[in-house]
Design a protein around this nucleic acid. Structure first.
Length: 495
RNA sequence: GGCGCCAUCGUCUAGUGGUAGGACAGGUGGUUCUCAUCCACCAAACAGGGGUUCAAUUCCCCUUGGCGCUACCA
């Protein structure tokens, strides 16, 4: 009987296997709206997106909300927000529709039902009446005997419902076979399906389970490449079995290595800060996030490390993805963020700074924010740091007068030099106020009295800080009135 | 426990059957009015054991270790 069954399966699957067609690449990103958008999800989405764009294919967004209890609309909104923030646009999805919708699994129950019925009709699936308690018992007994725990097949030969029992779930009649598939990243992977037992595919006709729903959707949405985390590698043979039983087309698989925490454990859910928007809040640029995430498990042919999204769609190759898990290294992310700040669009950053400082200080500043950014970009690795290091422009920090000194100079000497600087600045007509002009007059003083003696007190007077960008550039941005005002303030401090 | 996947500097990684390269982080110098940037240099790895081979980090096997799955979650 068993053998006959396997033979039948083999014949069936082979007869239904279709010729590989040379057609458009279609990938999907299929998150569950059951929590805050996770870094790992972001990376999976990114790899899918880049692969699709590289080959001129389609990127489809599907919301897997079959778990009614845990799925929440706010989390679904979080998925859209996160993808948009990263710059990953989708061609089909719940919000924009598409040829193969609906794209929310909760709206597709009638479709799953159809295939569930088909499987039951063809005897590929059957109702299981075992209660959860019975199953647990059975399971523990098997483990106690040192056997691999799997469903016994207790209900598989039933022709009608046992009296007084209601169906608990629908099971797939797993054939005993070797399931082998090619993974783009890992090569050939194979499993022995006899270890699976008869797999649950739905709680009832209207409540499909993950492994089953995925297979139906991927077929109906014409997905050609399934790119997902390695945690799904063990699900793949099960899904292939369903696929074959339903006569569906084969898809190409690529299982990405997992992102690991510093202790090499799975990164997910363990830490709150694995939420993507946590990084946005901390001042990370989406470009940097994307750049960092792509480098976690992928590397170009050369040693280039800083990429933009459009560049990635040129050079990315799925086959160059790493097999081993990668530790999420915040320090490298920070560095990459700094690099992206250096090449960021000054207009974009200026707008951010204007908004942020208005909010922070409660008023609008008439500064050239692009120049503020220019001075800050080498000093800040995040947007938040950029705001911090530019703070003295908006609010002069309080400082002790001693900060104004230089080496062993007397207070009289410092006072005198500050006065010289003030007069030099005052002498510049407003319409000639520029970096070049300020540089000219201040450097003249510096040549005469020594650089440190001129620059150091001037810096502290203008910024209130011992360490800061060059005073000339600061003075230029501050403009004459404010610069002179700050020097006067310094002069008053000196006893 | 069973099944599966994986293994190069601390971290991300390149690489090849014949000097193990880059990046982050670390260290030391240089540039500079300070800080930062920038530049130069230094230190740092093929998990272990067997095979195959003239030769193994590379190919094969074993061990060890890590991770994943083993749900009426996805």
């Amino acid at each position: 009987m068993e053998r006959l069954w396997n033979l039948l399966f083999l014949w069936y699957s082979q007869s239904m296997a279709k010729e590989p067609e040379n057609k458009e690449i279609r990938v999907r990103f299929a998150p569950s709206p059951t929590g805050l958008f996770h870094l790992g999800s972001g990376r999976t989405a990114l790899f899918n997106w880049v692969h699709a764009r590289k080959h001129g294919g389609k990127f489809i967004l599907r919301i897997e909300d079959t778990d009614k209890e845990r799925s929440k609309l706010e989390f679904e909104q979080g998925i859209y927000d996160a993808l948009r923030w990263m710059g990953l646009n989708w061609d089909e999805g719940p919000d924009i529709g598409g040829e193969f919708g609906p794209y929310r699994q909760s709206e597709r129950t009638h479709i799953y039902r159809e295939y569930l019925e088909k499987l039951i009709k063809t005897n590929w699936a059957y109702y299981c009446y075992c209660s959860k308690e019975e199953l647990d018992e059975e399971r523990e007994a098997m483990i106690a005997q040192g056997l691999p725990p799997k469903y016994s097949g207790h209900c598989s030969h039933l022709t009608e419902a046992p009296v007084g029992k209601t169906p608990q779930l629908i099971r797939f009649r797993t054939p005993d076979t070797r399931v082998e598939f090619k993974d783009v990243i890992r090569g050939t992977v194979s499993f022995d399906s006899s270890l699976f037992g008869d797999l649950p595919i739905a709680k009832d006709l209207d409540t499909p389970l993950y492994n089953f729903a995925v297979v139906v959707d991927d077929e109906l949405m014409h997905i050609t490449h399934v790119i997902r985390g390695e945690d799904h590698l063990s699900n793949t043979p099960k899904q292939i079995l369903f696929q074959k039983a339903l006569g569906f087309r084969e898809v190409a698989y690529a299982h990405l290595p997992l992102i690991l925490a510093a202790d090499r454990s799975k990164l997910s859910k363990r830490y709150a800060e694995t939420s993507l928007f946590e990084y946005k809040k901390q001042g990370y640029l989406p470009e940097a996030m994307v750049n960092f995430l792509i480098l976690l498990g992928w590397h170009p042919k050369d040693d280039k490390e800083i990429f933009t999204l459009p560049e990635l769609t040129e050079v990315f190759e799925l086959s160059r993805v790493q097999k081993a898990g990668a530790i999420f290294n915040e320090e490298k992310l920070l560095w990459i963020n700094g690099e992206h700040i250096k090449i960021a669009d000054p207009k974009m950053i200026s707008e951010f700074l204007i908004e942020k400082t208005t909010e922070l200080y409660g008023k609008k500043f008439d500064f050239d924010f692009a120049k503020i950014f220019e001075l800050g970009k080498g000093r800040a690795k995040t947007l938040n740091e950029l705001v911090d290091v530019s703070g003295f422009f908006f609010d002069l920090p309080e400082y002790p007068w001693g900060l104004l000194t230089w080496k062993d100079e007397t207070s009289e000497s410092i006072k005198e030099k500050l006065l010289l600087s003030k007069e030099a600045l005052l002498a510049i007509p407003d319409e000639l106020w520029s970096y070049e002009k300020i540089s000219e007059v201040i450097n003249l003083l510096a040549e005469r009295h020594g650089k440190g003696l001129i620059f150091s007190p001037l810096r502290v007077a203008l910024t209130g800080l011992k360490a800061s960008p060059e005073p000339i550039a600061v003075a230029e941005i501050l403009k004459k009135t404010e610069a002179v005002k700050r020097i006067d303030h310094a002069l008053k401090k000196i006893p």
